[in-house]
Simulated assay, not measured.
Amino acid sequence: MTVLIRHALLLCICLVAGINSTHALQQEELDNLRKHISVLQKELEKTTESQSEAADELRESERTISNSKRKLAELSSQHRAADHTLEKLRQQGQQIERDMQSQQAMLSKLLYQQYLGGKQEYFKLLLNNHDPDQTAREMRYYEYIARSRSTWLNMLRVNLAQLNEVVQLTQQKSGEIAALQAEENAQQKILEKDKLARQQVINQFAQQLKQQRHEIGRLQRDENRLSQLVAKLSKMLTQKKGKGVFNNDKLPDNRFDGKPFEQLKGKLTLPVMGEVVNKFGSARPDSTVLWRGLLLRAANGQPVKSVAAGRVVFADWLRGFGNLLIIDHGKGYMSLYGNNETLYKQVGDILRGGDTVAAVGNSGGNEDSGVYFELRHRGEPLDPIKWIAR
């Protein structure tokens, strides 16, 4: 038996060590991924044009707005969770108080009965010439009363201790909520300041931004830059692993999670409820540069959903596409979401289909709010229309 116990303990230790080792490897892989992508981003920035161009003036302000809104969303989520916990604690405290009132009432009845009878009842039962069986039954009855009193007293003590603990936790959680509220207010002020700074940049460079939107050479450079980014990401991930009318009243969900991405052709849903304003492969307005994806016009701040399960491999500002998020779906398939106001997810985050990944915006110097959506396979753009359920 001792040998079996020893083997069981060794097995448990090995399992725990294996879990810790797996977690460490996953964290190391994530850190390496973020490091490589950070290097890639710096390389792209070094090879771009002069930093004095209008779009580059927007970069820091739009990055900051995205970070501020992501932080605000995280604080709001923590606030909601804390409120939920506080409400549960209050309900628990109320239930304990009700239980204590019931226990106190029962205990009062028992004490009152004992007061009326007192200890002399035991002697009366013994001295009276009653039937011995009846006397035994009545003695047992008094014993039950004494046990009940002890039980109710113990329950009352336990509940009192629980109530004190709940009161302390409630006070602690209330303090946490107050701190979160203060931090939310501070973050909101920072966000308003960031938005004002961005608007000042837009006002300052309004004419220049307008010209750049239709400048063929710039549009082509933006497209080339995105293609280079996707190609390098695909190569990096491959090496790592080697080692019409559409139903716009729905948003992506997780019903296809677990299926290979190539099997989802004709089944996907657009990442945001909006109007498709262009055709894949057609020329952009007043230029010969072709659309490699879909521009979905939508209200500012609307949630942008991941079209399928995957992992975030890029979440940063890119010239011409603003706050851009790229999701790797495996086997060389990627989805791209550009011009967002806020990026809620970061590099390395694992996603399910339908997860909110961003918020609609017009970052990157666009006039209208919306999302630029692309699908790519091994770096080559795919027509999203053919992948969307009609």
Results as ranks from 00 to 15, higher is better:
A55D: 08
N362E: 11
Q26L: 10
N159F: 01
Y144H: 11
E176Q: 13
L268W: 09
Q228S: 14
E29P: 02
Q104G: 06
Q199H: 05
Q263H: 04
Y333W: 13
K259I: 07
A161W: 05
Q94W: 14
N366C: 05
L163Q: 14
V201L: 08
S102V: 12
Y141M: 08
V276G: 00
S77F: 03
E341I: 06
Q92W: 09
G244S: 11
E374G: 08
V245P: 00
G242V: 08
L40Y: 07
D349S: 11
G338E: 01
I13G: 02
E341D: 03
A206P: 05
V307P: 09
A54R: 11
E176F: 11
T170A: 05
K109Y: 06
N339K: 09
L290R: 15
I216M: 06
N323T: 05
L296W: 04
D383A: 12
E45N: 10
V39N: 07
M273I: 06
K124L: 12
E53M: 04
Q134G: 08
L375K: 11
L268D: 00
L219E: 03
G18Y: 03
R34V: 01
S102A: 13
K259M: 10
V360T: 07
E45D: 11
I145G: 04
L318I: 10
Q51N: 14
E183I: 00
A105S: 15
K265P: 02
R225A: 06
Q171A: 15
K240N: 12
L169D: 06
R137S: 07
K109T: 07
L382M: 09
R137P: 02
A206T: 13
V371D: 00
P132W: 05
F246L: 15
